[in-house]
């Protein structure tokens, strides 16, 4: 019994932490895809780019990976700004974004990936930080102790702060509210004195900017290599859809639900079932709530 409780407690704790990490990977997509309707399938690969930048700063100057992520975030903001500029002028402006826009981001994914291979090779990379490989052991009872790996704790705390900050920005500021409205009615937004293209450009840049800090968390949690982004593509889209398109807090909660489900399944039923369970949850939820767990669907658009 003690062993069962020990495993359960640890699975729950790890699940919540893992959820925070997943949220960090998904939050940018929750903005670009969830709020702006821009299907940025290159997002996970941008995260890998962020991870390599963290690696470069860490291995060259010994900069802490979290700090490296904060440093590279403005760079990603500018990158997102430029990408949207191209996307808007070439596709969105002429209403050709649905399929050709998708192809654009697909191409971007491979350009970034191949660029990383040329620059860094295909080797797996890790970063060094004092908290990686260490854990915090909390003894709860006889044969029951909870071990919290610091690398996951750091990822969770940073992801939670970033998610809550973005959520607050989008709900409490004039610009944030315009971001949430822009996909619903661009013409109405113009009548409010808002330039919807500017709103989309800045919001898209914000979404891409999360790849800086998110990528740093990625390389803190696991070793990275250039093609890793494609591996996580399905997961991040699943989390954004599960949480409900347009809901930032929904993305965080969905990520935690997936994290707990994977961790419980890996502990008690076998790790190979974990991804099946995440997508099973997604299917089950969509069957009953097509708008996702925390999505809002008052309007038809």
């Amino acid at each position: 019994m003690a062993i069962f409780i020990d495993l359960l407690l640890n699975a729950l704790v790890i699940g919540v932490l893992l959820g925070g990490f997943y949220a960090a990977l998904s939050i940018g997509l929750s903005i670009t895809f969830g709020l702006l309707d821009v299907v940025n399938i290159a997002h996970p690969t941008m995260l890998v780019l962020g991870a390599f930048i963290a690696f470069l700063l860490n291995s060259t100057w010994g900069i802490d990976p979290v700090l490296a992520g904060i440093i590279s975030t403005p760079f990603f903001f500018v990158l997102g700004w430029l990408i949207y500029q191209v996307y808007y002028n070439v596709f969105e402006k002429s209403g050709a974004e649905s399929l050709r826009g998708l192809a654009f981001f697909f191409g971007l994914l491979f350009i970034i990936e191949v660029g990383l291979i040329i620059q860094f090779g295909v080797d797996h990379r890790l970063v060094e930080a004092p908290y990686i490989g260490q854990s915090w052991n909390i003894v709860i009872g006889e044969e029951i102790d909870v071990a919290i790996p610091f690398r996951l704790l750091v990822a969770f705390v940073v992801a939670a702060i970033a998610t809550l900050a973005i959520h607050a920005y989008l709900t409490k500021t004039f610009f944030g509210r315009a971001v949430r409205a822009v996909a619903q009615d661009m013409m109405a937004l113009r009548l409010m004195g808002v330039d919807p293209i500017r709103v989309k450009r800045i919001a898209f840049a914000m979404g891409v900017a999360t790849a800086g800090i998110g990528g740093a968390l990625m390389i803190i949690v696991l070793p990275i290599e250039p093609s890793l982004g494609r591996l996580y593509l399905g997961n991040v889209f699943a989390i954004v859809v599960l949480g409900g398109l347009g809901s930032i807090s929904g993305t965080l909660l969905a990520a935690v639900i997936i994290g707990i489900a994977e961790s419980i399944v890996a502990t008690f039923f076998g790790p190979s079932w974990a991804p099946a369970v995440s997508f099973g949850i997604l299917l089950a939820v969509l069957a009953f709530r097509p708008e996702g767990l925390f999505g809002k669907t008052a309007g038809a658009h």
Binding site: A266, F268, P271
Partner: peptide, 14 residues
């Protein structure tokens, strides 16, 4: 285990 596994501590604990 699945290649997407991000954290292996639950597996090792089990």
């Amino acid at each position: 285990y699945n290649p997407k596994t991000a954290d292996f501590t639950p597996i090792l604990r089990a």
